[in-house]
Amino acid sequence: MKTRLVLGLLAMMLSFGVARAQGLVELRDGASLAFLGLTFIDTSTEGAYNPVRADETARLAMLQDAVQERLEAEGFAMLDLAPVATDLGRIKNPADCYGCEVRIAAKLGADYVVVGEVQKVSNLILSMNLVMRDVASGNAVRARAVDIRSNTDDSWLRGMRYIFKTHFFVEG
């Protein structure tokens, strides 16, 4: 019994130490979260000459679903975006709108807001980022970018899993 208590306390201290070592702010359990989605930015030569690709549109939807599912699995209360649909409809990229993501999330009463981008540099090189902000302060509490190689479902999912594993929800 005493051994379990000591081991439990050591595990808690270790997980707290990992988060502190990375400078991560402790996230509130059961906090409300507004996930405003991911934006696809095609700066590749291919994108300059060709129309939007159906596979990349489907891939972005798949990745957004994966992010939503992970955030829910981590215990966040996901907020319905319907009340701010008009606001979101006027914004091309919620991840690059001079703080509008925080203002929109505040309208919903969210504790946190998450936005992200996937930038296609070429069909081989893509970059993705994800940012979580505390709505009350506007400060980023989680942010990570990763470059991925190859433009496939698997590479996109692997990139986002890496973001979650190494920074958002650090696995000790």
Rank of each mutant, 00 (worst) to 15 (best):
T45E: 15
L79A: 01
F40M: 09
R20Q: 09
G172A: 08
C100W: 07
S150I: 02
A77T: 11
G30I: 07
P51G: 11
L126D: 06
K120G: 02
C100R: 12
Y162M: 14
T152H: 07
R149C: 12
A11R: 01
K165N: 14
I91E: 02
L63R: 06
S15W: 07
L14Y: 07
V118T: 12
V118Q: 06
T166R: 12
T166Y: 12
L14K: 05
Y112L: 00
R90I: 06
F169C: 09
S137I: 00
F76A: 08
A85K: 15
L130P: 04
K120Q: 12
A85Y: 12
M62D: 13
T152I: 02
S15A: 15
D96L: 08
L157S: 13
A19C: 14
S122E: 09
L63P: 02
M132R: 12
V67M: 07
V146H: 11
G116Y: 04
L124F: 10
C100D: 12
S150K: 12
L124W: 11
R142M: 07
A110V: 04
D55W: 14
E56S: 12
G109W: 01
P83D: 10
G159I: 00
E171V: 11
V131Y: 05
L71W: 00
A110S: 03
T3W: 09
L157D: 06
M1H: 15
L126I: 13
E69R: 10
R59A: 08
V102K: 05
G8I: 14
D147K: 08
V131H: 03
L7E: 13
F40G: 06
A34C: 05
D80S: 11
R53W: 07
F169Y: 14
